[in-house]
């Protein structure tokens, strides 16, 4: 009896990594099946970034000031736009319930889904950003720091956003409600992420910002899977 409860409460490492790997592989396979959709999301990022110079000015000083902020804000929006994909299809066809009822540990399963979300949205954005940063009069070092900050920051966006995506399952007003819940929580990531390049420009080291992003990522990695698993259970009640 007590042995059974212990295994249920603390699943061993093998079953955790098996559950994580299963969910990751499944969601990646589904995402890659609709490559057009992924392409559209990246195009959204490119277009939003390219609109700002048209709305302000093509002068290099203006663009250099705006650059990091624009690239980061657009990354936030791109992440937000793709969040419903995380759970809603599985929720409406009942797969999510099956997953939650399975003996596999739910936090590990949702972690796999979040990892797949980051690999298909955050990572491409972080890879693409240095290319787009060229439009904003940024030099080599700045582009490197920008990419590093995005690589550390976009996983946090996926982890925090997944909590909001799970909480809004079955709620009215889907997308805009999700934005209201998630965007305020994104504020610190935006501040440190865009601040990394600003610090470099001000002649300081971007180290503190990158360390804080890394600390935030560790915190989110530890806490978010359990919060998301709880939110999924609440939604399935």
């Amino acid at each position: 009896m007590s042995e059974a409860t212990t295994t249920a409460a603390a699943p061993d490492a093998a079953s955790v990594s098996a559950a994580f790997g299963w969910a990751l592989a499944r969601d990646l396979r589904i995402a890659l099946r609709s490559k057009a959709e992924l392409g559209v999301q990246l195009m959204f990022y490119v277009i939003v970034v390219s609109l700002f110079p048209l709305a302000t000015s093509p002068s290099r000083e203006v663009l250099a000031t705006l650059g990091p902020g624009v690239l980061w804000t657009a990354a936030l929006l791109a992440s937000l736009l793709s969040l419903p994909r995380l759970f809603s299809a599985d929720f409406s066809d009942g797969t999510l319930e099956q997953i939650a009822l399975s003996p596999r540990p739910l936090p590990a399963l949702v972690s796999g889904k979040m990892a797949a979300h980051w690999l298909t949205t955050g990572l491409p954005v972080a890879v693409l950003a240095p290319v787009l940063g060229g439009q904003y009069a940024m030099d080599g070092t700045e582009l490197g720091i920008l990419a590093a900050a995005l690589l550390l920051g976009t996983p946090i966006l996926s982890l925090l956003g997944a909590i909001g995506a799970a909480l809004t399952l079955g709620a009215r007003g889907g997308g805009s409600l999700l934005a209201l819940l998630v965007l305020p929580l994104y504020a610190p990531v935006l501040i440190f992420g865009a601040g990394a390049v600003d610090a470099l420009r001000a002649g300081m080291s971007a180290g503190p910002q990158l360390s804080l992003l890394a600390a935030g990522l560790l915190l989110a990695l530890v806490a978010a899977p359990f919060a998301v698993a709880t939110a999924v259970r609440i939604a399935l009640d």
Partner: peptide
Amino acid sequence: AIDDPRRADRACAL
């Protein structure tokens, strides 16, 4: 946005 009050309780708490 959530009709069931008990579900809303727990979602809002989280």
